[in-house]
Design a protein around this nucleic acid. Sequence first.
DNA 1: GCGAAGATACCGACCGGACGGTATGTTTCC
DNA 2: GGAAACATACCGTCCGGTCGGTATCTTCGC
Lengths: 186, 186
Amino acid sequence: MSLANQRKKEPDVVRQKLLDCAAQILVDRGLANLTVQAVAEAAGVTKGGLLHHFTSKQKLTEALFAEQLRVLDAEIDAAMAADPVAHGRFTRAYVRSTLRADHRGPCPCAALNVSTLIDPALRQAWGDWYKARLSRHRDTDGDLALQLVRYAADGVWLEDLMAQAGEPPIDRKALLSQMIELTRKR
Amino acid sequence: MSLANQRKKEPDVVRQKLLDCAAQILVDRGLANLTVQAVAEAAGVTKGGLLHHFTSKQKLTEALFAEQLRVLDAEIDAAMAADPVAHGRFTRAYVRSTLRADHRGPCPCAALNVSTLIDPALRQAWGDWYKARLSRHRDTDGDLALQLVRYAADGVWLEDLMAQAGEPPIDRKALLSQMIELTRKR
DNA sequence: GCGAAGATACCGACCGGACGGTATGTTTCC
DNA sequence: GGAAACATACCGTCCGGTCGGTATCTTCGC
């Protein structure tokens, strides 16, 4: 009827944009504001349009989660490949992916873990991924001390999530290097 | 009309029970399921009854938050009073309150921080509390290494929150003692 | 090359349900 | 008896989801 769908049709682009906007909304407008309406109009699409790509909100969040997990997984693999030292290799990659003081915008972990709080199924998926990853690197990253460093990394992105406005008062560079150093000791 | 309010009237008890049930629901049925309806009937009261004590859901969550923060604050004070060593005293207390492998049920931090994800105002309040506490103990707990231990503590309760069913595979006792030990070094 | 004929992408209106909140009773306490 | 402590009934809103329609893309016979 209207002239809204005169636009060129780019299903893949729209789909990806929907996911991006969902992630954005999730991290900076909070979980409660992640509605299909909000996501749709952020992506320049109507609610019906969104529901065409993702048959339910459930599907949307699942896709979002999968996407973020994929990105994180890839980042970690890349970081590990560039790390010559075996011991603590996974932990360092995990920490670097989580902190990465460089490029702006919260890490995928944030959106990832927040969405985990919504859905028990996603929680399960995250747990599975983490457990699998951990058992893969048990030889190099099984130490309790390394586990502790990973815990700290989780604490950091959590603070990131809560801080929101106003830069972190703490020096991230120093923190990161200290954490990395902790993974070197046996 | 019905015989539901034949019960003895104990406003203080009911009020407290409402808060307790709210916390319970928050940590083990998730944020989305924290509705006034659910809280009310978990406490054996109707929605109207709840709204009598807390004039809005906002008020309820605020009260819940304040309560949990009060408990945590008290726990930390107690733990600090029993700690003879000055350096890292606050951090140890924080860690002990967060981990406490002993008494069942997730720590107040969980409910506290989850509710933080709802409301920016609560987020602010938590940030203020933490910052104030930190500046009070800057002399003893200002080190980056201690900050790192506190981050790890946050990571631990987060995992607690996500693990839910199924006991933690990791040895908490050992983890706790290792974290405590980390606070001893200079 | 081109035009018919589905298939796909998207819009816009609507529905049912749940939730927060209000207004008004009814019972118990002091 | 009056105020406090509840219960009951009801309203407005928002959200997730459905449905029928329309516009654009793709396919394919010719």
